[in-house]
Amino acid sequence: MTVSSEAAVPGSAGGARQQHVFEAQRAGMPNPRVYLEELWRRRQFVVEMARSTLKAQNYTTLFGQLWLVLNPLLTGFVYYLLVDILSGGKHAATYFPQLLAGLFLFNFLAGCMSQGAGSVIGSSRLIMNSSFPRLLLPITQIVIAFFRFLPSLLVFFVVHFVKHEHFTWASWLAVPAFVCVALFASGLSFICATAQVYFRDFANVLPYLTRIWLFLSPVLWQLETQLNRSGPKAELIAMNPLSPMLGMWGDALVEGKAGRPEWLLQGACWGIGTFLLGTVLFMWREREFSVRL
């Protein structure tokens, strides 16, 4: 976007008047203070857009909004079946809740990425017709992904209580773990949105990348058991930025115990770093979006 400023200018008719200045800029970064102010002013748009999109999505289906709960339940069941067959039916008693906890959080991340990738390209009409901070578009998709994640969390808690698991103080560590994932996912969402403008193949490759990433993450298996083994696979898993976050999340939520403290530190670094990188990349490139659609 071009620079837009609003300043009180003494108007002839009395009262303050907005002033906008648009000029050619060498550097692509808009003034961050003005940009973030404009973004904050439109926060209600994000909520309203997310709410009405979700409402419109399942308008024509038989089960309607119930799909928000059915989808995660069915996904959990499919993966449970898969792992059950592969492992010959031998696994820990907490395996199903463990699987659901990881899977739902990973789906939130995957949703942020895939919806983020489509957010700018899919709103070409909006972009060509109105001027607003474009970061609003991927942010809306992240909020939608979060609204989809909430009912899946409900499914998890039902399964968890049916299995007579209990909560401890350490369970609260799931909250910072989630914040790390949310920041990480937001950063990735901004990066995906930008990438999709320049490489239209990106959305086709993305589902395969996320699927592979799922298998390399401690979702279908447990982090501790794999880390204790040695070899290149264990090293690859240790390098996966999601491993510490998901490890912390699963341990806290399902087992009610605190994971390794360095996991939280690693997760925070990855989360904040990716978030900043994604935000800067998107803001730096967004002026060009309207001429590239």
């Binding site: 648009f22 050619a24 109105s130």
Partner: peptide, 21 residues
Amino acid sequence: AVAGILPPSQGRIEVNGRIST
């Protein structure tokens, strides 16, 4: 360009007032 949607590649636009498109 006047609405602030397309960035100018050269030059400058000044708009005094709330823009509606």
